[in-house]
Nucleic acid binder design. Structure first.
Lengths: 332, 332
DNA sequence: TTGTAGGCGTTATCAG
DNA sequence: CTGATAACGCCTACAA
């Protein structure tokens, strides 16, 4: 396994009979070299199979032309769409993205951010707002722009692009109450910050209507099975339950499954509202009512803000609220 | 945004009153420096907030202590589990993972592999077997070990860890036939290589039983809605259809939804087998019969093979078959 | 146990 | 338009 030495700019230069400096220029600004020279350089690159080595440029304090994205989960369409939104912008600007995931753990986030910084990323997009002290310290030290995407924290690290999850949950709860729910319950899982924000919005709406808020939760990750278990617990402990606001669509669909099995009519006996507006909610019967979070757009806007900041243009606003809406569902 | 210069080993060394060489040693082999020196170095590191810079070591050793993982999708539990399997191994060995996703596009894969190589990764784990010629050329050039995870290609680039998807689909089809299905159909989406392998296995089993294989497909990504549409098409074009082998659980669950709506009894009138054994299949009623792919394990084994190869130990086998099994479902 | 010297491949800067 | 030079921060190899 003695690696064949990788092809360098010098190799290309030797093949063409020029200096590596010209090759380097051609790669970055093709127009800055003579057209004919460029052609010959390109030919040599194709023949020899040159692959860029980012280490030296990172070293020479030039920008790495890379940004880091930190997401909590690799199996959630929400973050998948966000990343695609980000990349739709960065790709065009010639920026590379380095992706890391945390399993919703702030210490894992800390480690992954340290790793991304070790690659000299020019900026970071984070998707959580809970950070360890060391994380905050590292980010300050690094002095690079940071966007917190998804939420709108009162005190952002730097910039924030997202929506008000508390208000969204509040409106959803009001909707349940307006439709005649007497005792809607909030179903929660994993208890990350967004889940807690939604809980606060739910509680707010309940208190505004002189109702007692009730949360039934698990600290496990949310999935369909968890939704089944939570609704079962809710009805056991709070038999009056006639509606649920779920912290995400997975739980909500689990609730639908369970109600079907138990012969509980939706929405007559049980109203259900989910969160995120994923495809599965549109495929079940009856179609799930859910809150749509524009995550591709959040990714795009986050990337634009970040790139502007990297280029020294501080955006006018530190917060960008993308808003939310409801799907046309039949469950609540 | 003029960046404050990042803290370097030299800064730590100056603070302690030693040379950066000793600091560098402390970071890599703490035992190689005097205990007391180590303590003072650690204190300075904590105070100044040193973050490693990987660029220089990449440059000098042409090794990065990092491996790259390329997955097709960021919203699929299959790959999420695979990555976690990989990281469970690499973390302990002090290797970093760089993650990239391709949206099931071989040219996107090519670009992402080029980017990973530009970071001087010491090895790569790929999850597709279709590669462009340029990809093959780059990988050969780079001379680093590569594991193709998930499948067992006849001609692997280097090493392969996975299972025989064709045989799995063949056995699933046999199972449908043994249970009395007269005209099982294969439902497919996106038509990636694994979907095609399963189709081949299905067709093989059908021909072995003197039945005419029928595939109903879409080139779109698979999701629950697609499952509904495919079963609807299947029954319209092939009214005798009394069973389906689905290329994944998402499609299968969509089929279940649709059958529920149409009052088609499962499994009496329609037998269904999915693929991957995801949670949702265990949460629906009736519980989905599915093929379990041990993806966490695939990740672990892939990582072990890769690290061994990086350290110059070529594994005994180039192929590692992890096998498959069925969930205890009620749908087929 | 700690220090010194040199080099890794690229880019910024300045010169031609 | 192209070339020469220096620098980036760390690690290998060797020396003390």
């Amino acid at each position: 396994m003695s690696k064949p030495r990788r092809v360098t700019l010098q190799d290309i230069a030797d093949a063409v009979g020029i200096t590596k400096m010209t090759v380097s220029r051609y790669l970055r600004q093709p127009d800055a070299v003579a057209a004919q020279t460029g052609t010959r350089i390109q030919a040599a690159i194709d023949t020899l199979g040159y692959i860029q080595n980012r280490a030296p440029s990172m070293l020479s304090r030039a920008s790495s032309k890379a940004i880091g994205i930190v997401i909590p989960s690799l199996s959630n369409q929400v973050f998948s769409a966000l990343v695609q939104g980000v990349e739709s912008v960065t790709r065009e600007c010639g920026y590379d993205t380095l992706l890391a995931h945390t399993s919703y753990d702030e210490y894992e986030e800390q480690d992954k951010i340290a790793a991304l910084l070790s690659y000299q990323v020019d900026g970071l997009i984070l998707t959580e707002t809970r950070h360890t002290n060391k994380t905050r310290q590292m980010l300050k030290q690094a002095g690079i722009p940071v966007v917190e995407a998804m939420e709108l924290p009162a005190l952002p690290l730097d910039m924030a692009v997202g929506l008000d999850h508390q208000q969204a949950a509040r409106q959803a709860t009001r909707r349940l109450l307006e439709q005649g729910c007497r005792a809607p319950v909030y179903l929660a899982a994993r208890m990350d910050t967004r889940t807690l924000l939604r809980q606060a919005g739910y509680a707010q709406a309940m208190l505004e209507a002189d109702r007692q808020p009730v949360t039934v939760k698990t600290t496990e990750a949310s999935n369909f099975s968890a939704g089944r278990q939570l609704i079962e617990s809710a009805l056991r402990d709070y038999p009056a339950t006639d509606g649920v606001l779920c912290t995400n669509d997975d739980l909500a669909v689990g609730v639908i499954f369970w109600c079907h099995e138990q012969g509980i009519a939706i929405p007559q006996q049980m109203k259900i509202i989910g969160y995120n507006g994923l495809d599965i909610g549109q495929a079940v019967t009856p179609m799930l009512t859910s809150i749509i979070t524009p995550r591709f757009e959040i990714g795009q806007i986050s990337a634009r803000y970040l790139l502007e900041a990297i280029n020294g243009v501080r955006p006018a606003r530190q917060h960008h609220d993308v808003g939310f809406s409801f799907t046309h569902g039949m469950t609540g």
